[in-house]
């Protein structure tokens, strides 16, 4: 069994209105050193071992549903775990 951590963020070229608002807020809280905030999504998937290649399955899932690749990028980390 695997625990897969998926991170979805807006592409660099796409303006992130939420991130911009948070950046402004941090500046008003006197953190001028924060130059940019990008807001994204974090998802945890539990995936059972199957005959299919795990990376292939995750990439399919991410590009079909979890991320909209027109505006978003994704990356993921895989941890193998032992069921309790």
């Amino acid at each position: 069994m695997f625990k897969v951590k998926v991170y979805v963020t807006l592409r660099e070229s796409v303006l992130d209105p939420q991130g911009k608002a948070v950046t402004h807020s941090l500046h008003s809280l006197n953190y001028p050193e924060v130059s940019d905030v990008r807001i994204g999504k974090y998802m945890e998937l539990t995936i059972e071992k199957s005959e299919r290649d795990l990376d292939e399955v995750i990439n399919e899932i991410c590009s079909k549903l979890l991320a909209n690749t027109v505006i978003e990028d994704y990356r993921y980390e895989v941890e193998e775990c032992v069921p309790q």
Partner: peptide, 17 residues
């Protein structure tokens, strides 16, 4: 329709949030 790929592009949050 955008998500389905029947039209090109995507929607973002309104600029004003």
């Amino acid at each position: 329709l955008l998500e389905a790929g029947l039209l090109p592009g995507a929607m973002r949050r309104n600029e004003s949030l």
